[in-house]
Design a protein around this nucleic acid. Structure first.
Length: 137
DNA sequence: GCCAACGTTGGC
DNA sequence: GCCAACGTTGGC
């Protein structure tokens, strides 16, 4: 499988892209949803990940990269969930808002739009390019 | 701050 | 194994 692309959500008040840049890398844990867990397990080192700010901002603001593949989430007492490690790549030239993404027919099938509450979702190669273009890149 | 959507849990 | 109740997420 060639490298895939993904989108993760985070509330900036909890953990923003600026926090990731400051930290250099972070353990992406706390995911408690089986669909999202499945995606975490599929991630491979080097996969590119859009970093989306939910609630405040509601926009894709940056690109991160998978630094470590799925391992048991230590914050999960049941032992059922996994975490990955992410590191920052770069901020987008301009954030791409949810509103803009919804308005773009090329992104009508985007998983995070179709299933709003999913915190980790796949992004196709075409969707990736479309979002980069909207970011002015 | 509210509420709709939806995933998970637990009783039966 | 079904389904109602509950909790959480996230857009508005």
């Amino acid at each position: 499988m060639p490298s895939q692309t993904w989108l993760v959500k985070s509330e900036p008040s909890t953990y923003s892209y600026a926090d990731l840049e400051r930290d250099g890398k972070t353990v992406w844990d706390g995911v408690r949803n089986f669909t999202a867990r499945g995606h975490l397990k599929e991630m491979q080192v080097g996969d590119q990940v859009f970093f989306y700010h939910s609630q405040e901002g509601k926009a894709v603001v940056a690109i991160a990269e998978v630094a470590k593949e799925a391992f048991p989430d230590k914050s999960d007492e049941t032992g059922r969930f996994v975490a990955v490690e992410l590191k920052p790549v770069r901020s987008l030239k301009q954030p791409v808002t949810l509103e803009d993404m919804k308005a773009n027919p090329a992104l009508a099938e985007l998983k995070m739009i179709r299933q709003g509450r999913l915190s980790v979702s796949p992004v196709t190669a075409d969707e990736w390019k479309a979002i980069l273009r909207m970011a002015g890149e």
